[in-house]
Amino acid sequence: MAEPQLWPFGGAGNVYWQLEWLTDVLQASAGLAHHRQLRDHPRVRVGFDGLATGGDRRWLENLLERNGGRSWRVPLPGVGFVLAAPLPVGAGSAPGATAGTFIRTGAQAALVSDDPRTAEAVGVGDVLPAGVVLSAPTISPHGAGTRVLPVFAGRLGGAPVIARFTGDAAPWRVEFDLEDPLPITADAGAALYRNWPVLELPVDWSTDPDWQPQRELQGVDYGTAKPVVSDLLGQSRPVIRRHCTAANGAEVMQLLGLLWALAGRAMPVWVHTQAQDLVLSGSAGATATTVDVQWAGLGIGPRPPGRRDLRIALQDGSVLYRRVTAVSSPNAGAERLALDAALGVPVSPADVRQISWMALCTQSADVVRINWWRHDVAEVALSFQAVPHEH
Rank of each mutant, 00 (worst) to 15 (best):
R39D: 01
W372H: 15
W59Q: 13
I139P: 01
P213K: 03
W21P: 00
P75L: 04
F165M: 12
L232C: 03
V112S: 01
E120W: 09
V368W: 02
A28S: 14
R36Q: 14
D340C: 10
H142D: 03
F165N: 09
L314K: 05
V368I: 14
R322N: 01
R36Y: 08
V324D: 02
R57G: 06
A288L: 06
Q315W: 03
S71R: 13
S93Q: 13
N371C: 04
A170F: 01
P116M: 11
F384G: 00
A338H: 05
D115K: 07
L382W: 09
V15H: 01
L314R: 15
A250D: 11
V44P: 02
R66A: 14
A97K: 12
R155P: 03
D168A: 13
A326Q: 11
P346L: 05
E175Y: 09
L64W: 03
C244I: 13
V89N: 10
D115P: 07
L201N: 04
R117K: 12
L343K: 07
R45Q: 13
G333T: 14
A107L: 08
R308I: 04
A110R: 03
W270C: 00
R369V: 14
N195P: 03
G285I: 08
A341Y: 06
A2K: 10
G257P: 06
S318C: 07
E251L: 11
P227Y: 11
N371E: 10
L259M: 11
D221T: 08
F165Y: 11
C244M: 11
A191M: 10
V228L: 14
I300N: 11
W373C: 03
P302D: 14
V25T: 14
G125T: 07
D366L: 01
E65S: 14
L258T: 10
A94M: 04
D115F: 04
A342S: 14
L217I: 10
Q37H: 06
L280M: 15
L156S: 12
V122K: 00
V203T: 15
Y222M: 08
T207Y: 05
P183R: 11
E20C: 07
L38S: 08
P129C: 12
A350E: 06
P330C: 09
A190T: 14
G234H: 04
S230D: 12
G96M: 05
